[in-house]
């Protein structure tokens, strides 16, 4: 267990800067998720912490010790890769025991065995200990990979999109399991993903990366309700936040300097047009997702997408009255303007 501190961390590959001037502190026992699109520098950040890449500038501190110049083996980190990086010629048991059998550790065989069995139970793979690692399903392989990271009890865990190559159901299961395991073990965990649901559900804090820079760091709630800028606002929320110019949809008070209004479902009130509410928009079509519907609403030639209850009673072609309720306001520099 340890605190991780990155300061002014930079790394370029050729002319392309992958990470530039990154400052980030992860508290002991904290679950931090780095969220960003492909190429935002998430994976590079993890690899820099693990020591698989050397930074061009800046430093990495783990548990108060400066480790920037140290090799991965000297850093006491565990890494779960996006691919199932199991040793294919070894059994599940031997894969889990591999880090413990390092000559540097000299653990007695009985202790290795006890540790392997304990972790196998934790990641629920204990029924397959004798199987070849290549004979497992994708979910099982990734559980073994996570187990292999856990077995060493390292000071920090680094996970690089460990669930991205799994199907949706497995991903949901493992997401819960990971969160459970992390709270059981109480370890520091840095997790990289481009999946906002993973970020929202698992993280203590989310760091939004863009172009190699940390744009915002905060709790999932913070990031969702008070995004620092348009980029962050667009990363979270499903369907994606609607960006409209002021004046398109009626709104009580718009702060000065607002150039764009960000409206999520909860920021828009939709009513069927009636005598009391004059229609200012029309429902274009409805996507049925099963548990909920997406309403595509045409307003003055623009289209916004909202989430709706399947029993809301709206039909395609309905004339509706919409207005904004405390939406997000963004200025000319794309930063959010706080209300009042």
């Amino acid at each position: 267990m340890a605190e991780v501190r990155l300061s002014r961390l930079s790394k370029s590959f050729g002319a392309a800067a992958a990470v530039s001037g990154l400052d980030l502190t992860i508290a002991d026992g904290e679950f931090v998720v780095l969220l960003g699109p492909t190429g935002a520098g998430k994976t590079t950040t993890l690899r820099l912490i693990a020591g698989l890449e050397r930074p061009d500038a800046g430093s990495v501190t783990i548990g108060g010790e400066e480790v920037t110049a140290r090799s991965p083996a000297e850093r006491d980190v565990a890494f779960v890769f996006q691919q199932y990086s199991l040793y294919p010629h070894l059994s599940v048991y031997d894969n889990l025991a591999f880090p413990l059998r390092s000559p540097a550790r000299r653990l007695p065989a009985a202790e290795v065995d006890a540790r392997v069995r304990e972790i196998a139970g934790l990641v629920r793979i204990d029924h397959k200990l004798d199987s070849r690692s290549t004979r497992l399903s994708g979910g099982e392989m990734q559980r073994v990979a996570i187990g292999r990271a856990l077995v060493r009890k390292p000071s920090i865990f680094l996970m690089d999109e460990p669930l991205s190559s799994l199907d949706a159901k497995l991903r949901a299961d493992l997401r819960l399991e990971l969160k459970r395991i992390q709270s059981d073990v109480g370890s520091t965990l840095l997790y990289v993903t481009h999946d906002q649901i993973e970020a929202m559900t698992m993280a203590d804090r989310i760091g939004i990366l863009s172009g190699g820079e940390l744009v915002q760091l905060g709790t999932p709630r913070d990031i969702y309700t008070s995004p620092a800028n348009l980029h962050v606002a667009a990363r979270l929320g499903n369907p994606q936040i609607n960006l409209v110019e002021p004046g398109l949809i009626p709104c009580q008070s718009v702060p000065r300097g607002t150039r764009t209004i960000g409206a999520r479902t909860e920021h828009v009130e939709v009513e069927k047009a009636a005598a009391g509410a004059a229609a200012n928009a029309r429902i274009d079509w409805i996507e049925h997702l099963g548990d909920q519907n997406h309403l595509h609403i045409a307003v003055d030639g623009r289209r916004i997408t909202l989430l709706a209850d399947p029993y809301s009673g709206f039909k395609a072609g309905d004339a509706v009255a919409i207005r904004l309720r405390e939406p997000l306001f963004f200025g000319a520099d794309d930063r959010r303007i706080s209300h009042g």
């Binding site: 698989l52 390092s102 292999r148």
Partner: peptide, 9 residues
Amino acid sequence: EAAEVDRAS
């Protein structure tokens, strides 16, 4: 890389 992180010489 996994082996390196796992402290294999």
